[in-house]
Amino acid sequence: MGIELELHRTRPARNNWEMSRDTLLQGSYEHGEALAQVLATLKANGVGKLSWVDPYDNTLFNEQEAKAALSEIAGLLKRCADESQTTAVADLTALLTSCAATPGSYLWFIGD
């Protein structure tokens, strides 16, 4: 199980992989397992945006949701069990920050 991240300039075409490449700004594919592990420590459907990320399906955050999720990063870092998880959260933070600063953009959490 892993969660890949993609930042898109507009809402990606989730049912058409080739079309979604047209809107792709940046992707993160190397920390999926560690990101899934640390996000799994959050209570599903709990308080905050990051608890709603589905590790088995796709989840989209718009720029406002990305901005709200940034306030949860400090708490998520405290849940990291090792360096790989800390690195995954740092990568997530960078993409959330970019999404929050880019009007009309979306951060796509691609679950297994």
Rank of each mutant, 00 (worst) to 15 (best):
E63P: 13
E63D: 15
T87A: 12
M19P: 01
A101P: 08
G2W: 10
A44C: 07
T41F: 12
I73E: 05
W17V: 13
R79D: 02
A66G: 00
Y106K: 11
L60T: 14
L24E: 10
T102E: 11
L76G: 04
L24N: 09
A74G: 13
E33I: 06
Q64D: 08
A34W: 01
E6D: 10
T59P: 12
L60M: 15
P12L: 11
G32C: 05
A69L: 09
D22E: 09
A81M: 05
K67Y: 12
D57Y: 07
V89L: 06
E63V: 13
F109A: 08
A74E: 05
A36K: 03
I73A: 10
Y106W: 15
G27W: 09
N16F: 04
A36N: 11
D112H: 12
L42T: 00
T10W: 12
L7F: 08
T97H: 07
E6N: 14
E30S: 12
T87Y: 14
L42D: 00
R14E: 05
A68T: 11
E4G: 08
G104Q: 09
E4R: 13
A74T: 02
G111R: 03
D91E: 15
P12M: 09
P103N: 12
G75P: 02
G75L: 01
M1D: 06
K49G: 13
A88P: 06
A90H: 00
L60I: 10
V47F: 11
E6M: 14
S28T: 13
S71F: 13
A94G: 13
I3R: 03
A90P: 04
A68Y: 03
G111Y: 02
A94L: 09
W17R: 11
A68R: 14
R79A: 03
M19F: 04
L60F: 15
Q37W: 07
G46N: 10
L39F: 00
M1S: 13
L24S: 08
H8E: 15
S51D: 10
G111A: 08
T93V: 09
A94V: 09
D57I: 06
A36M: 08
C80H: 08
L60E: 15
E18K: 06
T97D: 09
L70F: 10
A101Q: 14
L25V: 03
D82V: 01
W17H: 09
A40W: 00
D91T: 12
W17K: 13
L95Q: 07
K43R: 15
D54S: 05
P55R: 01
S28K: 10
L92G: 00
I73C: 01
I73R: 01
P55A: 03
I73P: 00
T10E: 15
C80Y: 04
D22C: 07
R21H: 08
L35N: 00
